[in-house]
Write a protein that binds this DNA or RNA. Structure first.
Length: 530
DNA sequence: TTGCAGTCAATATC
DNA sequence: GATATTGACTGCAA
């Protein structure tokens, strides 16, 4: 049905979301590959926004060795990775060829005069244009991601941040150009990278891109060029718009699109962003502390009490849980290796999951709710942590396939008597459980391993994804890939799990797990003390 | 249905 | 102006 719809009523490129473009890119690839028609017909593939991401890919891709994509072609120069899987190589090849074109003028699009929507027919497009790079890369990148050995997400982001700041390059530019993500996402990603093993394939993509970019010797220059070009385009636009007397409208997008639906009215359709008041957040946090997984009824109650939409409350809980979880990851990383960046990700690293602290706040911020925090924080930031620690994180336990309906449910609010909000006033922080381990296994592992620390201990943990203890047993010819990704660092620095703090946290974690388990079996008042 | 991962994009903050 | 935060959305899996 989708296909039919797509074939009969294709939307113009510019109207498609990244995801929506994928099918077209695939079709194009299919056409190119199988039929050998290299027409780029996909409706104006180079529409405005896209370009960004598009280009982005290009860069890295074009690099000879940097990306696997190039591998097939440039094998000579780079590490043609013996691995280059044939399969992909083919498509990749065509992709690269397409991509290879001289850097497409992103600016063009940016200039505001985006190539017309669906049009620039193939002819011209052929070579000149930026193909669905985004898609392209997306495809090949996916292959890369799939084959990629474990990467040190923390280390990568750290380096990226360094490079960006050192060269005065912005997140927006980097994100749009290299990662195909928006500024906010980039910021989030750089600030709170999740460990590799916790990422889905999709989630790993940005890290692979970053790694490729880091490996690209010309990465900075390219970005700088982009920056310059953007500036130029901006100035141009500015001038023209000024002269046109056109009150500047959102530059590119939308304009020529009138064809489709309503061009402007959209603004009005936008619904205002909901901004929760501090008190509301507090109330929600309190409710969360009591029941991280509130029942629908509780949610309703909360919504009415706070005068919010239930969907808002639901979203808040989702976001909060997920953000807290993420906080945990970084905490773990940082705590575990204060300087030894990188340690984190490796599966082994996760053992570190010991840091039950965290959270809380990142999510909503720093506002420290009271928070007698936990005692275990010895770190300076403890203050913040303290607060975080109070956040119960049953979620974690449930995290992975919470076997059954695990964790959450236990914590779940079945009965939720006494509305959430009214809960224990400013919840003196039940000191609740802090962040529990992300995954049972993790927990277990970490619990077990962390204390022990030694590699041995780590190995014992049969982490799901641990598949590759990075270096050594990377499943798929890591060797070449390693060179491809510059793996050294990737796997690099980890170690030091013998950090006293870590131990402490690990112990703490054990205790938490134990209590949670207990609580799960029998209704136990939520009164934690860690 | 529910929870989550990954993102976007509007705001806030720096 | 750049970066950080965060409510909402999409897609997927169980």
């Amino acid at each position: 049905g989708s296909v039919s719809d797509m074939l009969s009523r294709p939307k113009p490129w510019s109207k498609l979301t990244q995801k929506g473009r994928e099918p077209f890119i695939r079709m194009q690839l299919w056409l190119n590959g199988e039929l050998g028609q290299g027409v780029l017909p996909v409706q104006g593939q180079q529409q405005g926004p896209v370009l960004h991401s598009v280009t982005s890919l290009q860069d890295p891709l074009q690099q000879g060795c940097v990306s696997s994509e190039s591998t097939p072609k440039t094998s000579a120069s780079c590490s043609p990775a013996p691995e280059s899987p044939m399969s992909s190589s083919e498509s990749v090849k065509s992709l690269t060829e397409l991509v290879q074109q001289p850097c497409p003028p992103i600016e063009a699009s940016k200039d505001g005069k985006p190539p017309e929507p669906s049009d620039p027919p193939a002819s011209d497009s052929q070579p000149t244009t930026p193909l669905p790079l985004s898609g392209h890369s997306a495809l090949s990148i996916q292959e890369l991601v799939a084959m990629s050995p474990e990467l040190d997400t923390y280390g990568i982001t750290k380096r990226v941040k360094e490079v960006l700041t050192d060269n005065n390059l912005g997140q927006r530019l980097f994100g749009e150009t290299i990662l195909g993500l928006t500024q906010g996402s980039v910021s989030d990603l750089l600030a709170r990278p999740k460990p590799w093993h916790k990422l889905s394939l999709k989630g790993r993509e940005p890290f692979v891109r970053m790694q490729l970019w880091l490996n690209d010797p010309n990465n900075v220059e390219k970005l700088m060029d982009m920056k310059r070009m953007e500036k130029k385009a901006y100035m141009k636009r500015r001038h023209s718009s000024v002269s046109d007397s056109q009150p500047c409208e959102p530059p590119s997008v939308g304009t020529e699109y009138s064809q489709g639906a309503s061009p402007q009215p959209q603004h009005q359709l936008k619904k205002p962003r909901v901004v929760l008041a501090p008190e509301e957040k507090e109330a929600l946090k309190r409710a969360y502390q009591q029941k991280p997984y509130p029942s629908p009824k509780t949610i309703e109650d909360l919504a009415t009490q706070l005068n919010l939409k239930t969907s808002t409350v639901i979203n808040w809980f989702h976001n909060y849980r997920s953000r807290i979880r993420r906080e945990l990851f970084i905490e773990e990383i940082q705590a575990g290796s204060q300087g030894q960046a990188g340690a984190s990700d490796s599966p082994s690293a996760r053992s570190g999951r010991a840091a039950p602290s965290s959270e809380g706040d990142s999510c909503d911020g720093v506002e420290a709710t009271e928070g007698p925090g936990s005692a275990d924080t010895e770190e300076p930031k403890s203050q913040g942590e303290a607060e975080r620690e109070e956040v119960p994180r049953p979620a974690e336990q449930a995290e992975p396939p919470p076997s059954g309906t695990p964790g959450p449910d236990d914590a779940r609010d079945d009965d939720h008597e006494g509305g959430p909000v009214e809960g224990p006033g400013p919840l003196p922080s039940p000191a609740t459980a802090t962040a529990a381990p992300a995954a049972p296994e993790d927990a277990a592992t970490s619990a077990a391993a962390a204390p022990g620390e030694g590699p041995a201990a780590r190995s014992s943990a049969p982490p799901p994804s641990s598949s590759s203890s990075s270096s050594s047993s990377a499943p798929r010819r890591p060797s070449s890939l390693q060179s491809l990704f510059g793996l050294p660092e990737a796997a690099g620095a980890r170690d030091s799990r013998d950090n006293p703090l870590r131990k402490k946290k690990a112990a703490n974690l054990n205790s938490i797990i134990h209590r949670l388990e207990k609580a799960a079996s029998r209704e136990e008042p939520i009164e934690w003390e860690f």
